[in-house]
Structure formats: C-alpha cells, structure tokens
Design a protein around this nucleic acid. Structure first.
Lengths: 188, 188
DNA sequence: AGAGTGATGACAGTGACTGACATGGGTGCT
DNA sequence: AGCACCCATGTCAGTCACTGTCATCACTCT
C-alpha cells in the first residue's frame, strides 16, 4: 500500500514490492496469484454474506439481502480509513477496477448460491443476488464519498428503500402497453 | 475467433493472431489495446443505449430502462450465433470475464449518464442504471442458455417484471404464486 | 540421527505490451 | 509530373508480469 500510494500501482514493479517485503519476486507469487491480488486479500466478505444469508429466518428475498448486507457493513466500517485509501488506489487504475468488478461478481455468485440454498428458484435467486450487489455498490460508493460520515449500514438501508420506490410505483399499470416493445418482432 | 475457439484464448499468442491476419504483432497493438479487446470490439451497445434512453418520452426510470434495453436487444439477436460462440470463449477464461464485467460497467455508466441527462437526480440515476444492467445480465444469461430459443427481448421483459415482483410486494406476497418468473404475459 | 515436509531462493524462459525510428504508398497541391 | 505530407505498417530493442524447475534450508516427527 505504501508503494502503491507513493508511485501508483502501475509504476510499482513486483520486484520492488518483493524487495520491500524482503522476499524474492518468486515468493511474492507464491503468496499472491498476481500483482493486483494484493489489494483484494482477505475476502471475509464472502463468508459473512454466505453465513448471514443462510442464517436469516424465512423472509422475502429482498429482506434476506437487506439483512445480509447489513451484517456485512461492519467489515468495512471497522476499517474505514484503510478502505478509503484502498479505494483511492483502485479508482486510479483500470486494471484494479476490473479485478474489483470480478470480486463483486463473486459476491453475486455467493449470494445467488446462498439464496438457492434457502429454497429460492434459480431465476429469482440470480436476479435478487444481482440487484442486491448492485444496490450495495451504489451504497458503498455513496458511503465512500459521503461528507457527512453516515454509516454504511444506513446507506445500504436507504439504497434498498430507494430500490423499492424505483421499481414499485407503476402509476399506470401499463407495463406492457407502451412503445417500449415496438420494433420487436420475430416472436419465437 | 478461429484461433480462440481452436486452441483457447490463453494458448493463443498475439504473434499467432498477427500472423493469421498477415500483419506484425506491433500492428495488432495499433488496432487493439490488448489481446482481450479483440473480443469486445464494436461497442454499438453504448450508442444504442445512450440514444434510446435520450429518445424515450417522459417515463418512469424503470420504464426508460425497459425501453432502452429492448432497443438494444436486436444488437444481439441479429448475431445470435456469433454471440453464443463468443460467450463460450469468454466463459472459458477468467481474464475475459473480467474484461466483460468492465464493459458492462461502462454500460452502467452510460445509462447513468443518460438518465441524468433526462433530469434524474444522480442518486436515482446511479441506482436505476445498476439495476437495469443487473437485470440485463440475468436476461442475457437466460437467453444464452435458453433451450426454447425465446427472444432476448422477451427475457428482458420477464426479468424486469420479475424485478418489480421481487422488490415491490414485501409480505403480502403478490397476487399469484411465489415471486418467481411464472405467470408473465405472452410473447410480443 | 535421519527422513519427510513445506517455505524460500536462484535462474532461466515465455509472452504481453511499449517506445522509437524507418519506410512505403496514397493524396492533394502546384 | 513533381513534391510535400500524412498515415499505416514494419523493425527492433527493451521492460515487466508471470511460470516451471531445481536446490537449499529450517523444522518436525519418529
């Protein structure tokens, strides 16, 4: 992190990292699968999500997700400063952003799996998992850039509420009537 | 694509690709920023989404997204076979999956931007964009693995409807069966 | 002590990617 | 035609991420 902060991620060579840690480059690669992985180390998040999802009593999918994400919040809140620093490094480098997206995708997969374990059909589980993590991304982003220092848990709650408002109120019951589907043909 | 299909992505060297195209390796890198980018070339999708979002008349956010995604569907449907082939290559390689996630993230950003251009506040726009693309991912995945060969547009519509069912009715579980995909209306 | 195990070092090699410069083939202008 | 210009491509050398292989060394168990 010192090196990444100092010179930037790209300008930091693995040789330098290894030297700083007083090991050889080869040893570095025995601990981390690649140069990026250093920043994505202990993925406690996966465990927390899986556990919290399984533990939740019989609730509606979105409630389960609310619960799981809220359980996960402290993982970040307890290390707020480190998390912000880390996020700054990631924000400055496309390769790291790709890796982060991959990690988030694995969270989706974790949630999906956990939801199915609760008896949800695979279609609903996949969708709920995607939406849950999508909401989490937004909440996390707001938390990071929040001048008011509100809790991550609070942002999560607000974002999930916003999700309900966003999708629920269809004033005109016309989800199927408008121009949205014109130009489509070739029904099977 | 021939080479990627034949030997796999990882085992295919840029030198080989260049040779097959009868150019030098250096020239390859003048056309593609890296080895992966070959598979993510003409991102017509971004344009379609941006255009369709801007063009939609004043509708609720989720309706706008429905419209935009439905407009985008033909981009895939017209090249169904190629798309499936490409997806198989991507599915076989983690590096390519990362890149695909990055592309999807840029779609989120496109949608977000377009929604804000319509006067939506940034919080709602970000959330709606994330959810929209999340739904698209699910729909796309279902389309790719759909034995029944239903339209992508149809999957999109079903998935977005499922999103409403998933988030809207909390306890008093909806009119019909569970919150699953069942009971959607018919094909276009 | 001796054998087994696991972490590390040493080293060589491959392949992705980049910067710098040279070259040839159009295109437009006179 | 002749010339200047530009753009795409080739050439070459170099950096660096990452890997396979083997040697070494500490540590443990019997």
């Amino acid at each position: 992190m010192e090196l990444y902060n100092d010179k930037g991620f790209e300008a930091t060579t693995v040789a330098e990292i290894a030297a700083r840690a007083e090991v050889t480059e080869r040893t570095f690669y025995r601990h981390f699968v690649d140069k990026r992985e250093v920043l994505f180390q202990p993925n406690a998040l996966v465990d927390v999500l899986a556990h919290a999802t399984a533990a939740a009593d019989s609730l509606a999918p979105l409630e389960v997700i609310t619960h799981a994400l809220t359980e996960a919040a402290p993982v970040f809140e307890e290390r707020a400063e480190l998390v912000r620093q880390r996020q700054a490094v990631i924000a400055a480098n496309p390769e790291l952003q790709e890796r982060e997206l991959a990690k988030q995708a694995s969270l989706v997969s974790t949630l999906d799996h956990a939801l199915r374990g609760r008896g949800l059909d695979s279609a609903t589980a996949a969708l709920a998992a995607e939406i849950g993590i999508a909401a989490f991304k937004v909440a996390f982003d707001r938390w990071i850039n929040d001048a008011d220092q509100h809790t991550l848990a609070r942002h999560i709650r607000e974002t999930l509420d916003a999700t309900r408002h966003l999708t629920a109120p269809a004033e005109h019951s016309a989800t199927t009537d408008d121009a949205s589907f014109q130009g489509q043909e070739n029904a099977p």
